[in-house]
Design a protein around this nucleic acid. Structure first.
Length: 279
DNA sequence: CACGAACCCTGGCTGC
DNA sequence: TGCAGCCAGGGTTCGT
């Protein structure tokens, strides 16, 4: 379930390995993930230098020195494993689809058992306009993203707020987990109509989104160091969630004794919430 | 246009 | 123990 914080953590980890480095060997172990790799993908990467590693929504972007960018998505189960220079090179596993070696001798492996991920090449000049990225909404951690911007993004919607938060056009990078967690933090029912998310309620939801994302990034960043000393895997981490996956547990909110986390299905997705605390 | 459902895929879990 | 069946979910596509 890589969402914005997990992708951010992956980018931070990869920036230290890739930025300023030249890719000296690239191996593809299959022709496609969710979509085919571009023609000549491995050859086009080989010899290129990565000038910057960035994130937009749930996509990572590696800017290359030839004006192109590797743009990728972790899908459901995508992870990167980093083998530092000089370490034993692990034999590629069944789901190790892309293996890249840098001129420093590091090995970066993209692993994705369910193959919902993708990796492609886009000209840097088209990163804002390419169909894959053009319609994505504001970054939730941008200072300019506030209640008014959320309200604007929800304009015209009549359905419940929770599925709307999963729409990348409304706000970028939110997935099922952090949508649930932010609504819980804000005390807002996932069933509340988008048209009632206004004013202070919208501001509260925005503040909750920023808080849960920032805490997850901080947690991912700290567990990253521990993790890398073990096997260097960059992916997503076990956070302790207040409501996600906790159906039947007592509500962790202190001001609603007797509340229980319940699970409902909205737009085909599980929603976890406390009906007492969230209105 | 907005929204929901099906679909892609495999590992892990449940229940017989 | 083994196996069928279901579930997880991000994004795309299709139908309403």
């Amino acid at each position: 379930m890589p969402e914005l914080p997990e992708v951010e953590t992956v980018c931070k980890g990869l920036s230290g390995v890739l930025e300023g480095r030249r890719l000296v060997h690239v191996a593809l172990h299959r022709p496609d993930l969710r979509v085919p790799f571009p023609a000549g993908f491995a050859d086009r990467l080989t010899g290129r230098m990565v000038t910057a590693v960035r994130r937009r929504a749930k996509y990572y972007q590696w800017l290359l020195d030839d004006g192109w960018a590797v743009v990728g998505h972790l899908g459901m189960s995508g992870t990167f494993e980093v083998s530092p220079p000089g370490s034993n090179r692990p034999p590629p596993g069944k789901h190790d689809h892309v293996v890249i070696e840098t001129d420093a001798g590091a090995i970066v492996t993209f692993r994705d058992p369910r193959r919902f991920g993708l990796m492609t090449l886009i000209p840097q000049a088209e990163l804002e306009t390419h169909p894959m990225l053009a319609d994505i909404g504001p970054e939730p951690l941008d200072d300019v993203f506030d209640g008014a911007m959320l309200v604007a993004g929800l304009a015209g919607r009549r359905g419940p707020i929770k599925p709307a938060l999963l729409d990348q056009k409304v706000v970028a990078g939110i997935g099922n987990i952090y949508a649930c967690e932010a609504l819980f933090r804000a005390g807002i029912s996932p069933r509340r109509g988008c048209d009632s998310i206004t004013g202070k309620r919208a501001a509260r939801l925005v503040a909750a989104l920023k808080a849960v994302l920032c805490e997850a990034i901080a947690s991912g960043g700290s567990s990253l160091r521990d993790h890398r000393t073990v096997n260097g895997e960059l992916g997503y981490f076990q956070h302790s969630f207040a409501v996600y996956g906790r159906e039947g547990d007592p509500c962790p909110g202190c001001d609603c004794p007797g509340g229980t986390v319940q699970r409902i299905v909205q737009a085909g997705r599980s929603t976890f919430f406390c009906a007492k605390r969230q209105r």
